[in-house]
Write a protein that binds this DNA or RNA. Structure first.
Lengths: 198, 198
DNA sequence: ATACTATTTAAACTAATAGTAAAAAAATAA
DNA sequence: TTATTTTTTTACTATTAGTTTAAATAGTAT
């Protein structure tokens, strides 16, 4: 029974998370105060504690939000009936489209060990390993089907993930390239690293 | 007249920077206290202020140290008489060898706009643009000499820089790969993106 | 209108920490 | 040894920010 009220709270929480992510991305976790997060939403910092346990909790829910979205997308690609080349291309493009659209959220996701401990840290690290694993799956499938030629899967996967994971650091909404253009270019260039020459 | 005393101070400063970088890399800038930095060197935080103006100053000098080293190395490569393929290979390897050797220093160099303002920020950003520019130079030289085939130099440069700039995030001194092995693999894979097939 | 609940606010509390300055200690020179 | 300078420590200040609480306000149902 997700009542009207519960929906309203959920909506407010999402609003707070989106707004918080923007400030956190700009100033960093320890550089952002609860007051700043609140002010941007025209609230007082006290109100934040009605919706979230504490500052960590806000950051944690930002992570959860994006991790869910990211995993959904990659799972869809991996489980599709595309061939490995198309899968890798789709996975790269999907990631880039999401990370440029949700730049702030992606920007606050680095160095989780500086921000979380115990269960929360493990959950975040697991989700990441999971995500990386899906890329390995695509790469291995391509090797098996002899469309990819890769000497060291882990290194190639790291190059791909690093490249796409750094985009949020320099991408600018108002810059010369759109997310789509970057996705197109990155996909075509990164595929050159793995596609077998016939 | 770089007296004995001045040399001693310079040495101590370097010691502080190296030690500080280790803590800063682990805990983040705002997550690291002056006391922690001092404690690791068996000093008291008061002493830190004898050598550095403040906390920012420590971070800033860490940046300077690495930027100088990095620029030296890339300049050497760019000005060498190697062919473009060898130059790109050397530049990639040199970067990776340095960033794995000086992991902590490299780790604290992200998001400079969160840490610096004004002159210091500009200096850091300039050094980075400079560094990126050297890669462009190598890429363009390769295109001119028709050994590289690149559709969008900026995108390719970003992929290369992102890939090598992320290594410090996952590299582990005690991990399975040495810096040399990573350098070897990254160079050979990244070159596949640009070298013209004859 | 009234009673009740949900939400927001303002103020107070607490703990932590960057930075300072004066005194103490150590090193050096006369 | 004594005087002087360099380095380190200790104790202090002021500020800042996360969190809590109790009261006020707004919203809803009877």
């Amino acid at each position: 029974m997700s009542s009207f009220r519960e929906q309203k709270i959920a909506k407010k929480k999402r609003e707070i998370l989106r707004s918080a992510a923007a400030v956190l991305a700009e100033k960093g976790y320890h550089g952002t105060t609860m007051e700043e997060i609140a002010a941007q939403l025209l609230m007082t910092k006290g109100s934040m504690y009605y919706y979230f346990k504490n500052k960590d909790d806000i950051l944690y829910h930002c992570h959860q939000m994006i991790m869910e979205l990211s995993l959904e997308k990659i799972e869809e690609v991996v489980n599709s009936d595309l061939n490995p080349i198309e899968k890798l291309e789709s996975a790269i493009k999907a990631h880039i489209l999401l990370s440029t659209k949700e730049k702030s959220m992606f920007m606050i996701m680095d160095k989780p060990y500086q921000k979380f401990t115990d269960d929360q840290l493990n959950e975040v690290l697991d989700a990441r390993r999971n995500y990386a694993h899906y890329f390995d799956k695509i790469l291995n499938e391509g090797i098996e089907k002899q469309v990819f030629e890769i000497d060291d899967t882990k290194m190639v996967r790291m190059i791909i993930l690093s490249a796409i994971n750094y985009i949020q650091q320099w991408y600018n909404q108002d810059g010369p390239q759109t997310g789509e253009e970057i996705a197109e270019s990155y996909a075509s260039n990164l595929l050159k690293m793995v596609v077998k020459k016939s």
